[in-house]
Design a protein around this nucleic acid. Structure first.
Lengths: 264, 264
DNA sequence: GACATAAATTCCATTATTTGGAACTGAGTT
DNA sequence: AACTCAGTTCCAAATAATGGAATTTATGTC
């Protein structure tokens, strides 16, 4: 057995960590799971898992339906609601994302740099509020997403270096920038133009334009993007959207400085 | 010390329960809390609390900022997104709530009966997506809210009796129905009309019209409401909205039966 | 800049909780 | 009636949490 993980963080969180892993398994599943379903993926002994699920149910984080399937509980929804409403960065950016979506008609993302990955914080997809899609909270590589490259482009040399060293490149598509030199070259172009593209570098058939959003004082490096399918969105279209994306990104950056900057 | 709680559920959830209590304290606070702030409300020893917070941070449920304040973490946002998107009942009702809001211009609520309380599941307030307000997940008394009385009105005698026995009435305003007899009388009127009002019975200056939503097969009893301030919304206005509210409630109820009913 | 004060963090023997294999229950099937 | 499978309960052993006190680190004051 592996006694330690090499990842950042380090120490084990004991009981809580296992319980949250179970919670996440159930909450992120695309359909209600029954006891045996959870047992199969959790890799824990029956007795242990049963007690963990019982505790989660008692706490209101999960709900046990009459048919013995587990679903997210109302208390989780409450925490959900609160953490969503109180994420300042997301809240500041939201109206700009909406505007960008109205202007382009395509999917708009807000992603933030976290270690060596991009985590999606918000997404605006359809005009009707189909908010909080499951994409939110998910991680993607920095080096082959528009938002990722945009965020990298505004890092200082030291921080960039810290991320690049130890970054493992994987070729997702033929277009993926799969080595340090290509990425660095691309980043200096992005620094010059203020715009990053994803030309089917992560997923075949998916393109995007992105621009950086940041608040250096808070070590916040992020990006906004407009994404579309390649069959409908050509390079000219991306170029056409670039000014709007850039404008939105600068507006959010300015708003961050104004709203969060002059505190205490 | 009290060895047991008389509340439903019973057994203690040990470590997890305490950790979640801490998580909730921080996540529901209206501003970032520092260690001492949490210590003051948690009532736990320093060492214990510190380890709990550390674990929550390591799990990504909380985030520790450079200024030593704790805020909800990205993993909580991820769980948020998922549990929000996957709550079937909320998702089924959402478009009808939107429509009701467009028709009335006032705040629309969706609340569900949980034990002896109403828990708010969704809320549509402004046209711009200010969704997931902090009200969501909060509990209110059944006997003095429109949604609560609407939900009670569709319960069968046994279930209603189980809730009423042991219900403690509190007079929030001069209009509050603060005893069983008044409430029962009101409920039979609601049963006859299919419409419940809150005439400043819970909060002074706040009125609403509500109608019941239910899926008896799943023991789901809920309600939708349109709420407004008394200075702007008179009884005539509530009466005027009543048909629309009632229509929305029946539409949701029907949709539930169609979407959730014929499963397995 | 040095000092005083408060806040945050670490330590570790004690204590309580989790662990997990196995036995039990009950519903559905052959 | 015997069999299977999902879910639940049990309890001695192993493990993780506890919490008071000491230590380090931040913050404010003169």
């Amino acid at each position: 057995m592996e006694p330690e993980r090499q990842d950042e963080g380090g120490a084990a969180t004991g009981t809580l960590g296992k319980a949250i892993a179970v919670l996440e398994t159930v909450a992120l599943a695309d359909r209600p799971m029954r006891f045996t379903d959870v047992l199969a993926v959790s890799g824990q002994p029956r007795g242990t898992l049963h007690r963990q699920l019982s505790h989660l149910v008692q706490e209101g984080l999960l709900e046990l339906r009459p048919d013995h399937s587990y679903t997210p509980g109302l208390r989780l929804l409450k925490l959900a609601s609160a953490s969503w409403a109180r994420n300042e960065f997301r809240a500041v950016a939201a109206p700009f994302l909406e505007a960008l979506h109205r202007e382009t008609g395509e999917t708009v993302h807000l992603g933030v740099l976290r270690g060596r990955e991009i985590i999606y914080l918000d997404k605006v997809e359809s005009r009707q509020a189909v908010r909080m899609n499951s994409q939110i909270g998910n991680a993607s590589p920095v080096y082959c997403t528009g938002v990722g490259k945009a965020a990298l482009s505004v890092l200082d040399a030291a921080a960039l270096n810290a991320i690049l060293s130890g970054l493992e490149f994987r070729r997702f598509t033929p277009q993926t920038l799969a080595d340090r030199a290509s990425l660095l070259a691309e980043l200096s172009e992005i620094r010059a133009s203020g715009i990053a593209f994803d030309r089917e570098e992560h997923e075949p058939g998916i393109r995007c334009v992105a621009a950086p959003v940041f608040d250096a004082g808070r070590a916040l490096f992020a990006g906004v993007s407009v994404t579309g399918p390649a069959y409908r969105v050509g390079q000219e279209q991306l170029d056409g959207w670039a000014p709007r994306v850039s404008h939105a990104a600068r507006a959010i950056t300015a708003e961050l400085a104004a709203r969060l900057g002059p505190q205490r």
